[in-house]
Amino acid sequence: MTNNILISGITGFVGFNLSNYLKEDYRIQGVSRRTSDKFISYDVLNKEVLNANKAFIHLAGKAHDLKNTSQEKEYFNVNFELTKNVFDKFLNSDCDVFIFMSSVKAIAGEVEGVLDESHESNPVTAYGKSKLAAEEYILSKEVPKNKRVYILRPCMIHGPSNKGNLNLLYNFVSKGIPYPFGKYENQRSFLSVKNLCFVIKELIENKTIPSGVYNIADDTPLSTKKLVLNIGKAIEKEVRVLNLPKSVLIILGKIGDILPIPINTEKIHKLTENYMVSNKKIKDAIGIKKLPLSAEEGIHLTIKSFIK
Rank of each mutant, 00 (worst) to 15 (best):
T2K: 05
N4P: 12
I5V: 14
L6K: 07
I7G: 10
T11C: 02
T11I: 03
T11A: 01
F16V: 10
N17E: 15
Y21C: 01
E24T: 00
D25H: 11
D25L: 06
Y26I: 05
I28A: 02
Q29K: 14
R34W: 01
S36G: 01
S36N: 07
K38S: 09
I40A: 05
D43C: 02
N51P: 08
N53E: 08
H58S: 00
L59P: 09
L59R: 08
A60W: 05
A60I: 06
G61F: 01
K62W: 02
A63S: 13
D65T: 01
K67S: 13
N68T: 07
S70W: 15
Q71K: 14
E72R: 05
K73S: 15
Y75F: 07
E81F: 04
L82I: 04
N85D: 15
S103V: 06
S103H: 03
I107C: 06
E112K: 15
A126D: 15
Y127E: 09
G128I: 04
Y137K: 13
I138C: 15
K141I: 09
K141Q: 09
P144W: 08
I151K: 09
G159N: 06
P160R: 00
L166A: 06
L168F: 06
K175A: 08
I177A: 02
P178E: 03
P180A: 00
F181L: 14
Y184K: 05
N186L: 04
Q187G: 13
R188H: 08
S192V: 00
N195A: 01
F198H: 10
K207W: 12
P210M: 01
G212M: 03
G212E: 14
N215D: 03
I216S: 05
K225P: 08
L229N: 10
E238K: 12
V241R: 10
K246A: 02
L249Q: 14
L249P: 14
I250V: 11
I255D: 12
P260M: 03
T265K: 08
H269L: 07
L271H: 04
T272W: 13
T272G: 07
E273G: 02
E273C: 12
V277M: 11
D284C: 04
I288A: 13
A295L: 13
G298W: 00
I299V: 05
I299M: 07
T302R: 07
I307Y: 14
